[in-house]
Structures are given as C-alpha cells and as structure tokens.
Design a protein around this nucleic acid. Sequence first.
DNA 1: ATGTCCATGGCACATGGA
Length: 258
Amino acid sequence: MKIATFNINGVNGRLEALLEWLEEAEPDVVCLQELKAPQNKFPAAALEKAGYGAIWQGQKSWNGVAMLARNADPVETRRGLPGDPDDLHSRYLEAAVNGVLIACLYAPNGNPAPGPKFEYKLAWYERFLAHAEDLLATGAPVVLAGDYNIMPTDLDVYSPERWRDDALFRPEVRKVFARLMAQGWTDALRKLHPEERIYTFWDYFRNAWGRNAGLRLDHLLLSPNLVGRLQGGGIDRDVRGRDHASDHAPTWIELSDT
DNA sequence: ATGTCCATGGCACATGGA
C-alpha cells in the first residue's frame, strides 16, 4: 500500500501535473494540501476518471486539503481538528482506507514570527498533538501525512543558520515536533534515511531548486503498530523540476499488507 | 529586503499568502 503526501499549491492550476504524476507513480492513497480551491471547484470528475475516489475540504483562495484513494472511496472519519469551533481554516481531513486510518494535514506556516500568525500555528499544533494522542490511544494503525511546515532538525535544512528565526524552524516548533515523536510516532522517511539530507520543498525564490536549497517539510508519521510494515519510501524529486511545478515534491511510503 | 508562484476581483494588474 503506497501512501503519498503532496502539497499541490493550487489543485486546478496544476491538475495536469497531478494527473501525470498519479499515472506514473500509482499511489494507493494521496493526501493533498493547498488546494486553493473552494468546495465546489475541486476537480473530482477528472480524478474519478483517473481512477481515484476523493474527499476534500475546500476553501476560497487559500488552504484546502483532500484525500484520494485508488479504485476506492476514503471512508471519512473527521474533518477539521477538534478543540476550536472558531477555526475556519481547511487544514485537516481524516479517513480510513484499506484498514489504515490516515490523517491529511496542512499546518499553518506561521510567518512572520513572532506575531499572531505564529501564535495561531502554535495553538493549532496544541490541538493537533492532543488529537494525535487520542488517535494513538485507539490502537488503530495510523498514518499522519501532510505538510507540517516544520523542519525537525538541522539535517532537514540546506542552511540551518539562515532559518533559525523562521516560523518553520524556530525552537518552539521544533520542540512541538519532538513532543509528537515522544508520543510514540515514527518519522518514516527519517527512519529509512537516518543520515541523509532529504528535502521535500524548494522555494520558488532565488533559484532554490537549481541550487538544491531545500527544506524537509512534508512528513509521514507512523503509529507503532505500522513500523514493522514500512517497506520503503521516497521523494519524487523529478516532479519539482518540471515546468509549472508546485514548490513541494510528492513524498511517499510503501506499507506491506497485513 | 529580496525573490516567484497561486487565486481573487474584475477585465488591468494590485494584493495577500506562502
């Protein structure tokens, strides 16, 4: 079972690129972020034609998350994080596919920091951590997949010193990620590549792709009962190098059948 | 600070968010 996360940065603007990647990569489940499309503008018919059932939570202009399943329909278990009915951002979807509970998340960016956007990011993560703990307590096999907008360690940044004060890398958010790990989750890509510099995002600015000035922002975290099923994983870097690409590359894992 | 994308409103290109 191949599970991918991909910040598409505009699902309609990059629909052709998404369909091309789906055809060549054949993921079983895809978590998409930054749809930048309202609920009624999600390209469900085109994805259905490509063989993918979908659920999505759109939003005008910004944010937006979706989950696709190959030759199946995700069985939705939750939309939106619990804990704040006033939070209207579309950043969280959760569904079961083929016996695995999968969360699709798009964490707030948080810049500029300090400031209200950074406070929102930290508050959002407090709710996320509380919910992640509840998911672990169910004993279900769970994958938390998405754009975390956090580089967990220096190994996840092309130039750590330049990012120390950024909302994606400040001590407060790295501590949040460490607390998540302490709950018992496994960072799948880091487990597969413990020493390697691996990136999932390259800024559009300053020729970041050409210089390989990347960041690792997109993560798939596994509940303890899934770690033994982790067969492999990677980042489809070549997708980032194409014309009209998203600034993120698809990131994926392969789980064995039970 | 800079840089480059997306979507929006409205029909040219400025703006916000990332």
